[in-house]
Structures are given as C-alpha cells and as structure tokens.
Amino acid sequence: MAFGPFLLLATLEGLLQAAVLTLTALGLSLVFGVMRVVNVAHGEFYMLGAVFAWWVASMFGMHPAVGFFVALIVSPIIVGAIAFASERLILKRLNYDPESTIVATIGMLYIIQQTTLLTYGPDARPVPAPFYYRIQLPWFGYSGYNLFVIVAAIVMLVAVWFVLSRTRLGLIMRATQFDRETAQAFGIPIERVYAFVFAAGAMLAAIAAVLIVPIRQAHYLMGLDPLLLSFIVVILGGLGSLRGTVVAALLIGLSDGIISVFFSPTLAKMISTLLVALVLVFKPEGLFGAKAR
C-alpha cells in the first residue's frame, strides 16, 4: 500500500482510539475537576462497562444489534449505580480527602478487578458488533462499525458539552468545580453533586467500553491501559479542564493510532509518556490547566 492510503488508514485507527479515549478521559477529568478526587478505579468502571455489555448481549442474543443497543443503555446504568454506591459508601465517608481517596480508589480497583475475575472469569469474551458493513475505499476496505464508534463518541461529546454549558445541572457542576464552599453558600448540595458526577464519570467510561468491546473483547484486566492513557490525557490537557481533555485525547489518540500502525504500539506509549514528562516539566498545569480555589 502506498504511503498516502497507509496514512489515511492509520489516521482512521487513530481517530477510533481518540474517540474512545476522549470519552474515558472525560469521565476521569470530570471527577477530578469537580470533586478533586483522583479516581484510580476509573479503568475498572471501563472494564465493568465491557463485561456488563457482554452479559447483556448474551441475554438478548436474538440479534446482535438488539443485544448491543440494550447493552449500550443498561451497562452504563449498572456501572453508574455501582459508582454511585461506591461514592456514598467510601468517598463521602472520607470527606473527599485527596490523599485518602487515592488509597481508597486503589482499593476499589482491586476489589472490582478481583470480583470480576471470580465471577466472570479470566477469559476474553467477544460481543458481536451490531452490524457488519464494510466501506470500500479505492485502496482498502474499512469497517463501518469503527466509523459508527467515532460518530457515537462525537455525539456523546456534544451531549456532555450541552449539559455542562447550557443546563442548570451544568451550571451547578461548574460552580461546584470552581468554588465548592461558595457553591454551598448559595444552596448547592455539593455532596449530591459529587455523587452524581462520580456516577456520570463512570458511565462515560462504561459507554466508551460498550462502544469498543465489539472490536477489542471484554476482559477483566482491560481497564489498565485506558486508565494509564486517561491519566496521560488529563495531565496533558490540564487537570480539570474539559477542553484540554478533548484536545489532549485527540492528540494522544491520533499519535497512538498513527505510530502504532507505522511503527509499534510500544513506541506510541513511549512517546505519549515522554510528552507528559515534557509537559510536567515545562507547563506543569497542562495545556489548558484550570486554576481552582
């Protein structure tokens, strides 16, 4: 294949990676931005999203599309409920102390991961794609489902942007993010906001997982890679900056996809990590770092 078409293929793979990464990292960024909690268990919510998608798709096996779209709704709801319960039972009791919550979410990571291993097992299991359609370009054929994932992620991003910037709920979240004490002084119940945000962050990761699981398969260890990449994205974009998260996810996702296709996935991870190191040295607050009180 000539260089041009090969670059196009690599870019499409990069966009797919960026789409899923943006949703996952957005959840992590939202939780950190509003709650100042570094959620080390975020990747496990991603993994749970995929595992529940397999479970739901297996139950509604009459047609792959039915199973998939039911999973796209049900799986994030279950994951959101688990995250909500975790927030009430653990993070709230720790008074959202930044250090304690890091340790607590590490604990949550292992509890979720090992519970999944005990119940779901060690095997990677596929979820059928809702449809199989191949787009035939002059140089190569490309999966229509991959493009669907990219479009679905864009739709989700627009929805998140709309909620945050155009609704009362978004205003409450932004006010809490900016100054939690003053928000309370104006009647905003910040603990309820935190519970909602933690669940919403986990649901975004779960949606990303449901979208990707027909391509990557569900496995109990699949949360580690997205967690690492999400941290890279969130640090690069600026902790708590949603705009930064989207830009950094595009940057990392595209570079990861392109470098993986042209060279190797290991080199792609090395370059991403090096990029974060450089940002931490020269612009510690990230590309779009938001200052908070």
Binding site: R174, A175, F178
Partner: peptide, 25 residues
C-alpha cells in the same frame, strides 16, 4: 445571604450565570 470577603465570584462564569446560582433557591 452571604457576601464573602474578597467577593468569591465564580469568575469564569458570566454575570448572568453568577446571578442564576443565587436564584437557585
């Protein structure tokens, strides 16, 4: 109603949005 020392506005939000937060109750 509370007017804190140093004002503590939500300085990234618009004037209208700051007032909307006051109106939430």
């Amino acid at each position: 109603g509370y007017v804190p020392q140093g004002r503590r506005l939500f300085s990234e939000l618009t004037v209208r949005e700051n007032l909307e937060i006051g109106l939430m109750t």
